[in-house]
Amino acid sequence: MATDDMWIWDGGRVCLDFANTLRSRWRTTPEETLRGPDDLMGWLREALLLTPGTTEPATAAVLTSARRLRESVDRAVLAVSDGRLPTSGDVTLLNRSAAAAPRPALQIVITHDRLEPADTSTHAADSTLALALVAQDAVDLLLSSEIRRVRVCGADRCALRFLDRSPAHNRRWCSMSRCGNRTKVRLHQARTRQSGRATES
């Protein structure tokens, strides 16, 4: 079973955080963090998608569906962010998954003299409905202008997906502390070694 520190929350959207539960996608065999139904339940709880106190466990069939949904989300998001259409199979799966949970009615509030949508976030009573919330977030992202800001981490050995909300839209790393700093240190060390060799010769 994965531990809570196994989860990474740098995606900027719950659907991207869910896609990131399959790690090291650059490898021939990526690292699966959703190894069993308990891992799926742990992730859904940490993502605050389950109603507090939900104890009904996920089944092996739900885990299989969750992994299938995750890969459809990943393929569709990367396709649309690259200006391509997702496959009809991924669209069908996303729509079917999203429809499993009814959406709350859209509400409005006045904040700082502006009209804004009220927070209508909901929690799900079981894992299937929680996955529907992930699918709904993916559908929202696919239809929003933010889809063009989806990035893949620039570190050679990462490949996590994230939403670039930086002011200049030039974020390269999933996380500066995890990948950005490590990459910069590694490049600096390589330059230092190279310059040391040049001086010796």
Rank of each mutant, 00 (worst) to 15 (best):
E116P: 00
S97I: 06
S145A: 15
P52G: 09
A76Q: 08
D74V: 06
E146G: 08
G89K: 11
D82K: 11
Q107R: 05
A98I: 00
A118F: 09
G42P: 03
G53I: 09
A99C: 08
V80F: 11
L34Y: 08
V150Q: 02
A61E: 14
L40A: 07
T64Q: 12
H123V: 00
R148D: 12
T120H: 04
A135S: 05
V134D: 01
E46T: 11
A60E: 15
R68M: 12
Q107M: 04
E71K: 04
T128N: 03
V80T: 15
M41K: 13
A130K: 05
T59G: 05
R67F: 10
A132K: 03
A76K: 04
S81R: 12
T87E: 12
S145D: 15
V152D: 05
R35Q: 12
A130G: 11
S144A: 10
G53F: 11
S97A: 15
S88C: 10
L85M: 12
N95A: 08
R75Q: 12
L34V: 09
D137L: 03
R96H: 07
S81D: 06
L133S: 03
S72I: 07
P117H: 03
Q107H: 00
E46A: 15
D119T: 02
R70H: 07
T51E: 14
R96M: 04
R68E: 15
L93A: 10
D74I: 03
S144P: 00
T120N: 05
L115R: 03
G36H: 08
L106W: 06
T54E: 08
E146T: 09
V77G: 02
L78N: 12
T92V: 00
A130F: 07
L69H: 05
P37E: 14
A100G: 09
D74P: 01
Q107F: 00
L50I: 13
G53T: 10
E71L: 10
R68H: 13
A60L: 10
A138N: 01
A124Q: 07
R103V: 06
V91W: 10
V134K: 01
G154F: 09
A138Q: 03
L85D: 14
L143D: 13
L143H: 14
